[in-house]
Lab assay of single mutants.
Amino acid sequence: MKHYEVEILDAKTREKLCFLDKVEPHATIAEIKNLFTKTHPQWYPARQSLRLDPKGKSLKDEDVLQKLPVGTTATLYFRDLGAQISWVTVFLTEYAGPLFIYLLFYFRVPFIYGHKYDFTSSRHTVVHLACICHSFHYIKRLLETLFVHRFSHGTMPLRNIFKNCTYYWGFAAWMAYYINHPLYTPPTYGAQQVKLALAIFVICQLGNFSIHMALRDLRPAGSKTRKIPYPTKNPFTWLFLLVSCPNYTYEVGSWIGFAIMTQCLPVALFSLVGFTQMTIWAKGKHRSYLKEFRDYPPLRMPIIPFLL
């Protein structure tokens, strides 16, 4: 059985960083990364991007050496992705923050609204209902991160945790300040508006959870398998008939419901920014589905049925 020789060059300087002799033909890129780490321990596998061309796409960890368009002496180019952190850690951090930050404003801890309001309670029912909904949303997200989601990528750049936390924590503080303010004004149409908004919120939260469970069942634990998601017997998953990412559709719907319930401008802005970002993600995933699966359902749109 022939063996391969693998040289790894710096993608920027073309400097030879490592030479691997007698590499098995069936070795994966993940195994080559581990061998590279032995000579350069500062670059652990998650930091490494190996590619066939200095400006090309990163090879997948599961790619097999003998199936790549290389000879028995293969040249790979290395790029440092920077310090990495696990997706689970990032999600837990960015979701735990809003949960606790919101509660600080809800309980009106000292130095927020003035001494005479310390630890007082709002007289408006919608304020307490909003706290329950907000807390439920982020507790749900935390539990899904721990027990439901299966991540195709193990890590992301460390800098992302600061960007994500600034976004989630900042908006949580902004909306919580106004919703729990002693001078907060309840919704214009009173109980009817709150009940309608609560119904929207609850339905969308159930829908979002149902989609996450359906997506989880598509991917076996520990794998990166991708399949076309289809509706199940659960009615909340029937939205798969019309959109590629109904989890985002339901998520946006939840925040629209919360915005109607609280009639709070920061919540509306958070919903708008979230919708914009999720639309970008949904379009990317939709394109990926179309590219990977020739039999992908043609009627589906990325996030909004028939429109977007």
Rank of each mutant, 00 (worst) to 15 (best):
G257H: 14
E7W: 00
Y44E: 06
A30P: 11
F201R: 02
F100H: 01
M213K: 13
T28V: 10
Y178M: 14
V88A: 11
L146H: 14
F105R: 01
H181A: 15
E31F: 08
Y296P: 00
L196M: 07
I161G: 15
H149N: 03
C204H: 03
R51V: 10
C204T: 07
F171A: 15
E251V: 10
A130G: 14
E292A: 10
H128R: 09
S223H: 15
L104T: 15
P54G: 11
L239P: 11
E292L: 08
K22V: 13
W255G: 03
P220I: 14
G71E: 12
S49A: 14
A46Y: 13
H134W: 04
L50P: 08
T39V: 03
L272S: 14
P54V: 00
G56N: 03
D21G: 11
A83R: 00
G170T: 07
G190E: 11
I101V: 09
H3P: 12
F136S: 10
A11S: 11
F36N: 13
D80Y: 07
K291F: 12
D53E: 08
T262S: 14
I85N: 13
S210F: 11
S254H: 10
N208G: 10
D80N: 11
V243G: 07
H134K: 00
Y289S: 14
P297V: 08
A46G: 13
A11E: 01
T188V: 15
Y138N: 00
M278L: 11
Y178F: 06
A74D: 01
G97A: 08
G97E: 05
A27C: 01
L299R: 03
T145G: 03
G257F: 12
V148L: 10
V267N: 11
A11W: 04
Y77P: 15
F111T: 00
T166I: 11
D61I: 08
L50K: 05
F36R: 01
T185S: 07
N160C: 14
K233T: 11
A130P: 02
P220F: 00
E144A: 02
M301E: 01
F270P: 02
K16V: 04
T276D: 14
D63C: 13
Q263L: 07
Y177D: 07
Y296K: 00
P98W: 00
K116N: 13
P45F: 13
Q84I: 01
C264N: 09
L242M: 06
R294A: 00
Y178D: 12
P229H: 01
K227Q: 14
K12D: 14
T166A: 11
P297Q: 00
F209A: 01
S49T: 05
N247P: 13
P302D: 14
T28M: 03
T225G: 15
M175I: 07
I132W: 14
L99D: 12
P98R: 03
Q84M: 05
L269T: 01
W87R: 03
R219V: 15
S152P: 06
A197T: 11
I304G: 00
H26L: 12
A191E: 04
S244I: 03
W174N: 04
L81R: 09
T89S: 07
C133W: 07
D10N: 12
P54K: 10
L17W: 13
C133E: 06
P182A: 02
E15K: 10
T93S: 12
G114R: 10
V23K: 06
T166N: 05
K55G: 05
A191C: 15
L129H: 07
F100V: 10
I85L: 13
I85M: 02
T279I: 12
K57E: 10
K283T: 05
P54F: 03
E144D: 06
T279P: 07
G71Y: 03
I29N: 04
R294C: 02
I203R: 00
L215H: 15
F19H: 05
L92T: 12
A83N: 02
S254Y: 03
F78V: 11
T232Q: 02
H128V: 05
H26G: 02
G190W: 15
F19L: 10
W43A: 13
I304L: 10
P229Q: 03
L104I: 01
L158W: 14
L196P: 10
L68F: 15
I132G: 07
M156V: 07
L20V: 10
G170A: 05
S122T: 06
L158F: 11
S210R: 03
D295S: 00
L76F: 14
S135G: 03
K60R: 11
V88E: 10
T185W: 15
L206F: 13
Y189D: 09
K285T: 13
H128K: 00
K116E: 08
S223K: 06
K12P: 15
H153N: 03
Y230L: 12
C264F: 04
K233Q: 09
L242T: 14
T125I: 10
L99Y: 06
C131D: 02
E15N: 14
Y113D: 00
A268V: 11
P187W: 03
E24V: 04
V23L: 09
T185V: 04
P98C: 13
L81M: 03
F236S: 07
H124F: 15
